[in-house]
Design a binder for these strands. Sequence first.
DNA 1: GAGTGGTCTAGACCACCTG
DNA 2: AGGTGGTCTAGACCACTCG
Lengths: 237, 237
Amino acid sequence: MRTPRYKQLHQQLKADILIGRYEEGNLLPSENTLSAKHSMTRMMVRQALSALEQEGYITRRQGKGSIVCAHQPALGLLSFRGFSEVVGETEHSATSQFLSKPQLIKWNEGFFFDLSENEHQAGCIAIERLRQVDDQPVMLEYTYLPNLNIPEFCQKQWVDSSLFRTLYQHYQLEITSVDQRIRAVTAKVKIAAQLDLDVGTPILHIHRKYGTSRQGFFVYSSLFCNTEHYAIGSIIR
Amino acid sequence: MRTPRYKQLHQQLKADILIGRYEEGNLLPSENTLSAKHSMTRMMVRQALSALEQEGYITRRQGKGSIVCAHQPALGLLSFRGFSEVVGETEHSATSQFLSKPQLIKWNEGFFFDLSENEHQAGCIAIERLRQVDDQPVMLEYTYLPNLNIPEFCQKQWVDSSLFRTLYQHYQLEITSVDQRIRAVTAKVKIAAQLDLDVGTPILHIHRKYGTSRQGFFVYSSLFCNTEHYAIGSIIR
DNA sequence: GAGTGGTCTAGACCACCTG
DNA sequence: AGGTGGTCTAGACCACTCG
């Protein structure tokens, strides 16, 4: 069946916001304008806007309009927050680098989440990244993508150094959910070396399984974080 | 201004679900039935149901109806998941006990979140709880409520051993958001004793600030978790 | 006062599920 | 076939914001 028109409008507005057609803090066209321009009732326009609001792309204010929000990273989950930030001090510069080129390999035996037969046979694309804050290594992230209908992923240009934006740009994949397990462990030799820590330092170990807009397609991550100076923060609404 | 009628319907249906008037897995009355019974248009009934759906109280299926969901704890955030559970084994029995009676005290100097003048002057109600899984202590939780418009909290009967349900029952307070910082630390002497661990064992330390349905009212928690055998899990949609 | 979003009405046709 | 939720129309009045 064809996509409902209010969903088309919703997607178009979202795309416009993401490419910067409407900037942060600015107003979207009014509901009346949109309903006239797209020849649909205000109720349908409102349905599109409600979805945008729920996803956190806009807030609406009576008498004012629909305001484009600063867009947070997927699910507000990966953000670092320095402890200094909590008590109201300076910002930090975050960077990210690959430890190796993304490559197609076999899944590890005893992978940390159960895999479907499909996923297992497809093999996986492994990505190793190190994240730094103020030039200090802070997080080691191993990401695994099943090699299912993401042709030539390893050849693709990355968007904004962001896996999620890259997946969206090339395959229209959006992250819709996260299932995660968090533990405190001590740094073993290899991890300690990469994070520039003493062996035995307490670090966070997080396993994540991201759900996407494509049924049955998941993204897996294993993260090690040094939280001595920067806590992992998340805001959930 | 008076509460919009669709919001009234939304609240009433939610209350009915919470007290068990509509049971898990059963169907809510159809949209047509509700619109007739409450003399409002189907559009307004749908607005009420959409809100319920968004909050996770129901799911809707075309041709079937609105199905009442098993209701998950607020924001799905506090759930334990044994690592055995991840690989598909048995369930665990979780219990919770008070380490002291909830009592009104002054806020600590250098509290882990910034407090408003209001909150600071009101003082706080401190709650200390220990959570156990299979009779092993696993999580130590310190919770702090500003003593603002929650009269006689310390005298109230707790509902289901749940702070959030208790706040809802007595003061109609609902948790709407969480802002948290997660770190890995080592157990100090006092914490180690209470969690029955060796000093130096890596544990999770989480600071949380919960937003509520009452503007300006927040709940604060500081948690220490032993994740040796059970990871902290969360699912976010 | 003009324009915005918020609430609300009274209909319609469609896709889907179940008996 | 009859009932359910999903999409959609064409209007209306209200509360709020801003110039």
